[in-house]
């Protein structure tokens, strides 16, 4: 492999996942450039979340290959993929309810640091972790709640903690699974601004149903249906494509 920056952040070829007789993803091939903003759309049951779970390694793929910056990660465990620069958020909020916001974000930071194995010193010994966690909470507008328990937060705030945990890892590829789900209009605007502000070192792949908001954030769009890629390309081209209308309007 040469030392130059690989041209693909994420390269998926002929990926397939079947559960018994049910095929969730079917020969899916995608390429995401470094720093790209990709939106994945499709009706319920199109295989979007399954695809995410295959990329992160939560599900082992039945066939096909996944490459992250040129490295074949198809058979790597989820935590190894995280160390290669992959991070995600969950559609169903998955946080540490009984811990403070600061602790939640700290776990995000700790996950990629060797000090996570340290067992002879209290966690509070690492002051830089706390500083960094608070800086990230500040960035998502939650610094004032840093010492609150996650269980005491409002739903919209939890969504932002999800995002903060992933951003703490400074990922090179970030998968966002319906980051706007269940939010009010005002909250949507806040989270949209946060996503728009994600630095360009990070490629963002997003599943979202709220087209009005999500299309503004996307450069490229992939339409999935019944586990297959139907249309894939520049945003405006995909939106204008008759096949997109067909899937969404049944015309």
């Amino acid at each position: 492999m040469n030392s130059a920056e690989p041209t693909c952040a994420l390269e998926i070829s002929h990926l397939r996942k079947s559960f018994g007789g049910l095929v969730a993803t079917h020969d899916v091939s995608l390429t995401i450039r470094p720093g790209e903003r990709r939106l994945i759309i499709g009706p319920n049951g199109a295989g979007k979340t399954t695809l995410f779970n295959q990329i992160t390694g939560d599900l082992q793929s039945t066939a096909g290959q996944i490459r992250l910056f040129g490295v074949d990660v198809t058979h790597l465990t989820p935590y190894r993929r995280a160390h290669l620069g992959l991070a995600r958020t969950y559609q169903i909020i998955t946080l540490f309810d009984r811990d403070t916001l600061e602790h939640n974000v700290t776990l995000g930071l700790l996950g990629l640091r060797p000090s996570r194995w340290q067992m002879w010193r209290p966690l509070s010994y690492y002051g830089d972790l706390s500083t960094e966690a608070r800086r990230i909470l500040d960035a998502v507008g939650l610094l004032h709640l840093a010492d609150s328990l996650v269980s005491d937060l409002a739903y919209g705030e939890k969504r932002r903690v999800e995002l903060a945990m992933a951003l703490a890892q400074k990922p090179r590829v970030l998968l966002l699974d319906e980051p706007l789900a269940g939010l009010s209009n005002a909250e949507r605007a806040t989270v949209k601004a946060l996503i728009a502000a994600i630095p360009r070192e990070t490629a963002v792949v997003m599943i979202e149903h709220d087209m009005d908001t999500a299309l503004d954030l996307a450069e490229t769009v992939t339409l999935l249906n019944y586990g297959r890629v139907i249309v894939d390309g520049e945003r405006d081209a995909v939106v204008a494509d008759p096949k997109t209308r067909e899937v969404y309007l049944g015309v």
Binding site: T56, G57, D58, T77, P78, Y79, A82, H83, A87, R88, Y90, T94, L95, F96, D97, R98, D99, H103, T106, L107, G108, L110, G111, L112, S115, R116, W117, Q118, M119, W120, R121, P122, L123, S124, Y126, M165, Q169
Partner: peptide, 23 residues
């Protein structure tokens, strides 16, 4: 109360999330 202990409690509560975070 160490970093490792925090990881342990995290794995107890949300093993999938912890794996996605690199643990």
């Amino acid at each position: 109360s160490s970093a490792f202990g925090s990881s342990l409690k995290g794995v107890r509560d949300q093993p999938r999330r912890m794996a996605a975070l690199g643990f």
